[in-house]
Design a protein around this nucleic acid. Structure first.
Length: 508
RNA sequence: CGGGCUGUGGCUCAGCUUGGUAGAGCGCUGCGUUCGGGACGCAGAGGCCGCGGGUUCAAAUCCCGCCAGCCCGACCA
């Protein structure tokens, strides 16, 4: 009945990448758009991924000396206003609370009570530098109080005009680290350290081969002196900012009044940093690893790493198959990978086998194991990897399976990373003339733009004017100024001198 | 905030031009047949046709108003 070449997701990536993305989110049961515009409902499978990300990151934050705390959701309007660039950056996307009570109006409908207007409006945090800065100002008196190394797991709200599930939503979940230091050098070191943590996490947990670097002035966090970032390329060759780490200098400590008496008995402002990653990482993973059959999950963040699918063709053997599956699951749970027990689930639901199999394919479970009466006789199982074709199965014995499963998961984890890395390298090109640059970022058929472009490594004279012109004309921006050594050269856009090549790309 | 479009079972939509008692596919429930596989048959549940007003013997359909959402711009971690 079914077409063997049929894909589980329609359209395919090639046909319509943005629509493919939305269909994967739906088919994998990750999240859905809610009745609140721009806000998503994160469903258990999607939230399970987030929980695993949290636990991985949280351990890394603790290992680098940070502790968790929690600060208010509401920020007085005046706090935001203190830092000029900061307010300019966020003012246009703020949710504002102006009343604290409802009553019934003349038309009989509920309304914010005119008698309950707040003296000062509160904004729902778009980020917490200012409210946390106010707390730090109270806490810091002496250089002995520094450094403060705190992280907060929270939700934030940025009233985006063009929401897209996970990638840009009005409300999203994230962590924001906020630190205060005695010296500039320490704060810069912290900024670098946390970027390195993100880079490691993206690579080792999410199989995302990110590029680390710093932002140009125009792409900097509002109020930051320097913004470091990790950028990743997804399968339509656009860039996604996967995480940022900001060196805030003394900008926020001055406006928040975080000052202390230094070792030399002089009053000084603290040096602060902030850094964050969000549920956007889930979107980046979907777009990086997903295929035309749905999500493909790196095992380290897969809520179910191995799903057991009992094959029950005959009613009389059903219970014995289920029993064997549960027994196998129990023994596999004793295996460990990445220092944790394997996450195994037996899907014993009374549904057609094909339906169940495809559900797990679409959700991206790394390994599917079928076990049926014939397998039980032979002492084998049928194993499918999500990173390979769904018809490609191997038939190890139970012993071989048990011994090899952790290695298999590590293989998948590594394979996803190297696959994504190969893809990025294939679509990263050094470009030396404006004509080549334009050709690179211009689809052949403008009425039906196909996936095109990628990362262009091109020189840049360092001016915002050049950057703005390219953004205006081609919608291409500088994603990051990579680390490492680059030879100086000539800016293809202005002919002026350039210190190094930077990464240009279209972005989400 | 400009320009375009759409509101009809859970979802995707047809019906509207030319008014006459609400339809399809998918999904859901039950029964049966299949089944190392996204299967099929039969039966069934489920609708203030966005809201308010008007025209008419009669409105999902025509007219007016309102509300909501979507797309394209502008804007944007």
């Amino acid at each position: 009945m079914s077409n063997p070449n049929q894909t589980a997701i329609t359209p395919t990536r090639e046909t319509d990448f943005p629509e493919w993305y939305q269909q994967v989110v739906k088919a994998a049961d990750l999240a859905e758009n809610s009745e609140i515009r721009g806000c998503m409902v994160i469903k258990p499978w999607g939230y399970g991924i987030w929980e695993l990300m949290q636990s991985g990151l949280d351990a890394m934050f603790k290992a680098t000396g940070h502790k968790n705390a929690y600060f208010p959701l509401f920020i007085p309007l005046s706090y935001l206003a203190k830092e000029a660039e900061h307010v300019e950056g966020f003012a246009k996307e703020c949710a504002v609370v102006t009343h604290h009570r409802l009553d019934t109006g003349p038309d009989g409908r509920l309304r914010p009570s005119p008698s309950a207007e707040l003296n000062e409006p509160l904004i729902v945090r778009p980020t917490s530098e200012t409210i946390i800065g106010a707390a730090y100002a109270r806490w810091v008196k002496s250089y002995r109080d520094l450094p403060i190394l705190i992280n907060q797991w929270a939700n934030v709200v940025r009233w985006e005009m063009r929401p897209r599930v996970f990638l840009r939503t009005a409300e999203f979940l994230w962590q924001e680290g906020h630190t205060a230091h005695e010296t500039e050098a320490e704060a810069i070191e912290e900024t670098e350290r946390m970027l390195a943590v993100y880079e490691t996490f993206a690579r080792d947990w999410l199989s995302l081969p990110v590029v680390a670097g710093r932002k140009s002035a125009s792409e900097r966090f509002p109020g930051a002196v320097e913004t470091l970032c990790i950028e990743t390329m997804v399968q339509d060759r656009k860039a996604i900012q996967a995480g940022t780490s900001h060196f805030l200098g003394q900008n926020f400590s001055r406006t928040s009044g975080i000052k202390f008496l230094g070792r030399d008995n002089s009053e000084q402002f603290a040096w602060t940093t902030s850094w964050g990653v969000s549920t956007r990482l889930i979107g980046a993973m979907i777009m990086t690893h997903g295929d035309d059959d749905g999500m493909v999950l790196p095992p380290r963040v897969a809520p179910v790493q191995v799903v057991l699918l009992p094959v029950t063709p005959k009613p009389d053997s059903r219970s014995s198959v289920l029993e064997a599956a549960e027994k196998l699951a129990a023994s596999l749970r004793a295996c460990r990978v990445w220092d944790e027990p394997l996450r195994i689930e037996v899907d014993a639901r009374d549904l057609g086998g094909g339906v169940k199999n495809w559900e797990w394919i679409k959700k991206g479970a790394p390994i599917r194991i079928e076990i049926g009466p014939r397998d039980i006789e032979k002492g084998t199982v049928a194993v499918s990897r999500r990173d390979r074709d769904h018809k490609n199965k191997s038939f190890p014995t139970i012993c071989e399976l048990t011994a090899g499963l952790p290695k298999l998961l590590e293989d998948i984890q590594a394979n996803l990373l190297s696959r994504a890395e190969t893809f990025r390298l294939e679509h990263t090109h050094q470009i030396d003339t404006e004509a080549d640059f334009r050709a690179f970022f211009t689809p052949q058929n403008p009425s039906k733009p196909k996936i095109h472009g990628g990362f262009a490594l091109a020189h840049w004279d360092g001016s915002s004017e050049t950057e703005a012109r390219i953004k205006e004309e081609l919608k291409v921006t500088i994603r990051c100024i990579p680390r490492g050594e680059f030879e100086p050269g000539t800016c293809p856009f202005s002919g002026k001198q350039s210190a190094c090549r930077v990464i240009w790309a279209k972005s989400y």
